[in-house]
Amino acid sequence: MTSFNWNNIFLNNYGTPTIELVEGEGVVVKDSQGNIYLDFLSGIAVNALGHAHPAVIDAVSKQIRKLSHISNFYANEPAINLAEKLIAISNLDAKVFFCNSGAEANEAAIKLSRRTGKRNLIAANNSFHGRTMGSLSITGQLAKQKPFKPLLSDVQFIDINSKSGVRKIKRKTAAVFLESIQGEGGVTPCTNEFLKAVRAKTIKTKSLLVMDEVQTGLGRTGKWFGYENAGITPDVVTLAKALGGGLPMGAILVTGEAKELFEPGQHGSTFGGNPVVASAALATIDVIEKENLLENSLNMGELLIKLINQIEGVTEVRGRGLLLGVELTELAAKDVELECRKMGLLLNAVTEKTLRLAPALIVNIEQVKRCSEIIDDAIKSVKKSGNKS
């Protein structure tokens, strides 16, 4: 770590980092002490093409030499092209709004739902949709909500993959917010059957189905969007993280009658659709397509699941593609995370017993094998030291 005192200059919302990363290439990063790591977190599922990808560097460099920012008083070609590209890869009859983060995308979806004339929202227990007041209101984690109450009052939480949850969707429900895989909730997937049942019920009650694809979108699950595995069509899709190729960008795709709900002046974003970031997003999608990274995500995910399931001390591996949760039998996930870091692997303890893996979509077989080896060695090391939860 550099000589400055972190605690004197930053608010304490993150705690104090123990390492400072200074550069990276692909799936490999280096810290300020010269230590090398395999990055299997990717900035929390952000760096779809890894670090310093030449296509992103080239796109950003060319655009920033021409036009850096203009606001939404004026049109810009990269944003137009990106909106068209998102509509094309989603195969939705949609319109697009750009913002800067997943929380902002979900806030926009909440506001959109108010335009239906209804107020009641449904979200899932253990969900995560952001930390702004609206998105936090639909985040089903009491520990995150409690310090900031009162939040939005008309929110009801359901268990995913439950018939009782589907039954709670009523005609008074403005929108249902779901993640195809609950990333922060322990990497827990919704079943295809559950998503189909929710879609059928929301059509019946004329409620919006909002699929939060912030963590699962743009190829991470082996498809462009996680909900595609269930064969459903949502009313709203929220995106961020991987969309900007490492730069901050969010978006919502709105379909059907809902795409006419917003009127001029009812929502906006100063930086939304910034031409530099839109150029990075276009380059990212282009590489995913040209290098067939959807297939690579699926194949490398299947290999990770196979290898990690063979490790003693692992109960199960959940998820799909390259968003995986490794459930530990008895050890504290944080202890294993820290031991992995010592051995040159970055991942994170997303819950008390679950490690989250979200490497770049370009990850290869050798890196996947090395990740599995380090997790195995880390578990053995923590067991040997006697650190159990």
Rank of each mutant, 00 (worst) to 15 (best):
T2R: 14
T2Y: 14
F4Y: 15
N5L: 13
N7W: 12
N7R: 15
L11Y: 11
Y14V: 00
I19P: 02
I19E: 04
V29C: 02
S32E: 15
Q33G: 10
N35L: 04
L38V: 14
L41Y: 14
I44C: 07
A45F: 07
N47S: 05
A48K: 02
L49S: 03
H51A: 09
A55W: 08
V56Y: 01
I57K: 07
V60L: 06
Q63W: 03
R65K: 12
S68H: 14
S71H: 10
Y74W: 13
P78I: 03
P78E: 05
P78Q: 03
I80S: 04
I80M: 04
N81S: 12
A83C: 12
E84W: 13
L86R: 05
I89M: 02
I89H: 01
N91T: 09
L92G: 08
V96L: 14
C99N: 11
A105W: 00
L112V: 01
L112C: 02
K118E: 09
N120C: 06
A124G: 07
N125F: 06
N125T: 05
N125W: 06
M133D: 08
T139P: 00
G140D: 04
G140Y: 01
L142E: 06
Q145W: 00
K146Y: 12
F148Q: 02
P150N: 07
L151N: 00
L151K: 00
L152G: 03
S153K: 14
D159R: 07
V166K: 03
K168T: 06
I169N: 11
I169K: 12
A175R: 02
V176H: 07
E179C: 10
S180C: 11
I181Q: 04
G185C: 01
G185R: 00
V187G: 04
T188W: 08
P189T: 05
C190A: 13
T191K: 13
N192E: 12
K196D: 09
K196L: 10
V198W: 08
K201G: 12
K204T: 13
K206C: 08
K206R: 12
L208V: 02
L208S: 03
L208M: 03
R220K: 11
G222S: 02
W224Y: 05
G226H: 01
T233M: 05
T233S: 08
T238N: 01
A242Q: 13
A242G: 09
G244A: 05
G244E: 10
G245R: 06
G246I: 00
T255H: 03
G256I: 08
L261C: 04
F262R: 01
P264S: 03
H267W: 15
G268V: 05
F271G: 11
G272N: 06
N274D: 11
N274W: 06
N274K: 05
V276N: 09
E291G: 11
L304A: 15
I311Q: 07
V314S: 09
V317S: 05
G321T: 02
G325Y: 01
E330Y: 09
E330A: 10
K334G: 10
D335T: 00
V336I: 01
L338G: 10
M343R: 14
L347N: 15
A349L: 12
A349I: 13
A349Y: 14
V350W: 08
K353W: 10
R356H: 07
L357W: 02
N364R: 03
N364L: 04
E366L: 01
R370P: 04
S372L: 10
E373K: 13
I375K: 09
I379Q: 14
S381C: 06
K383N: 15
